[in-house]
């Protein structure tokens, strides 16, 4: 990881490892949230395992979306 924080631009670029780690964290956290939401909804509604499976897919899609947003240039400031 590079000592980028001198500038107040965007996120520090990091090396290859840094980028990979950040993408991995995004995917894993979206999956964790998806699985947790599905599991709790299932426990509440008694529909095990259907909502769990559905939200597992939603979690995977959200993970891919997070990684896409990570690399999409974003408008800073205004």
């Amino acid at each position: 990881m590079d000592p980028a924080p001198g500038s107040t631009g965007s996120l520090p670029g990091g090396g290859t490892w840094g980028v990979g780690f950040r993408a991995g964290v995004e995917v894993v956290s979206a999956l964790v949230v998806g699985v947790a939401v599905g599991w709790f909804l299932d426990r509440w509604l008694g529909t095990w395992p259907w909502l769990f499976l559905l939200f597992f897919v939603f979690g995977s899609v959200a993970g891919v979306l997070n990684v896409y947003r990570l690399f999409k240039p974003r408008s800073v400031g205004k």
């Binding site: 979206a30 964790v32 949230v33 997070n66």
Partner: peptide, 21 residues
């Protein structure tokens, strides 16, 4: 029906990824 749950999961994953990192 696809976009809204995905966006909600993506929004909810923010604190998780922030803390896990």
């Amino acid at each position: 029906p696809i976009i809204i749950p995905v966006e909600i999961v993506s929004y909810l994953s923010r604190p998780v990824s922030l803390s896990i990192r």
